[in-house]
């Protein structure tokens, strides 16, 4: 009886783990907000995530069934029967080296395209290379954003007619856009949870980051690299505008920022 109790105790937890994992989407503990990715690249990442989840889930269940089975049989051996005297099995060793090896290799190579798309400049979508909307400059503990004047291109050096904003990044929805990520002080990380985008901002580097908001709306932007005591406060948002309204919005912003109270010339 005691034996049964121990096997139950050791093996109930994988069962619970599987149940909780299956319930996760219902319990709202899964991917944030809608549970769907708000960007196409995020969709690909979710797909890879679920693929790995299925493979590892099968391995998790399989190894635990095996573990439960061997514990069960090993604890049921009659007192006078000795353990099975064996030092191993060459064929088995080869099998459980080669098969997982192949699966792992497949997994590794299957990831590469998505990574290239996100980070390797040659694989960027064409539109992302052209639509450089803003420079995001992180500092303790806020995001400063610099846009080029409407119709102009973003320059490395700040220009006189640049526009500035804090903690609100305005972009058009429905097409890839690129920001240039920098930091004034320590490292920060540009994290868009619902779009599955993350990139560290590194002192001394300007890092292009592209993303695409599928729908107009507001998306959380937080910091994911420890940057000091106020790290947790670096909340901001990305505002994605319907593409046809975006240019108009930028013009209005330009007018608002350069309105000195006198009538225009």
């Amino acid at each position: 009886m005691k034996r049964l109790w121990w096997i139950f105790f050791l093996m109930i937890w994988p069962v619970l783990a599987v149940i909780v994992s299956l319930l996760t989407p219902q319990l709202q503990w899964g991917f944030p907000l809608s549970g769907q990715s708000d960007s196409p690249l995020g969709g690909e990442i979710d797909h890879l995530f679920y693929l790995i989840l299925i493979i590892t889930g099968v391995v998790f269940v399989g190894t635990h069934i095996a573990l439960g089975y061997v514990i069960w049989t090993a604890s049921n051996r009659p007192g006078d029967r000795r353990a099975w005297y064996t030092h191993g099995n060459h064929k088995l060793e080869m099998t459980w080296t080669i098969i997982p090896g192949l699966i792992l290799l497949f997994l590794a190579f299957y990831q590469m395209r998505t990574w290239a798309e996100f980070r390797m400049e040659e694989a960027y979508p064409e539109a992302a290379k052209q639509n450089i909307v803003a420079e995001v400059n992180a500092r303790q503990f806020e995001w400063r954003i610099r846009y080029p004047a409407p119709g102009k291109e973003l320059q490395r050096k700040p220009q006189l007619d640049d526009m500035y904003g804090v903690n609100e990044l305005h972009v058009p929805a429905g097409s890839p856009v690129t920001i240039h990520l920098r930091t004034i002080d320590v490292q920060h990380s540009f994290f868009l949870p619902t779009m599955r985008i993350k990139q560290d901002a590194v002192p001394g580097l300007v890092i292009p980051v592209w993303f695409e908001a599928s729908e107009p709306g507001e998306y959380p932007l937080v910091c994911a690299e420890l940057c000091g005591w106020g790290h947790y406060k670096m909340g901001a948002k990305v505002v994605a505008h319907p593409p046809e309204e975006f240019d108009e919005f930028m013009k209005k912003m330009h007018q608002a920022q350069f309105n000195d109270g006198f009538a225009a010339e």
Binding site: R3, L67, V70, I71, T73, S75, R77, W84, G88
Partner: peptide, 13 residues
């Protein structure tokens, strides 16, 4: 290999 070690063993909890 750990699972293999328990396999066919004579275990005491």
């Amino acid at each position: 290999n750990w699972i293999g070690t328990i396999w066919g063993g004579h275990i005491e909890f």
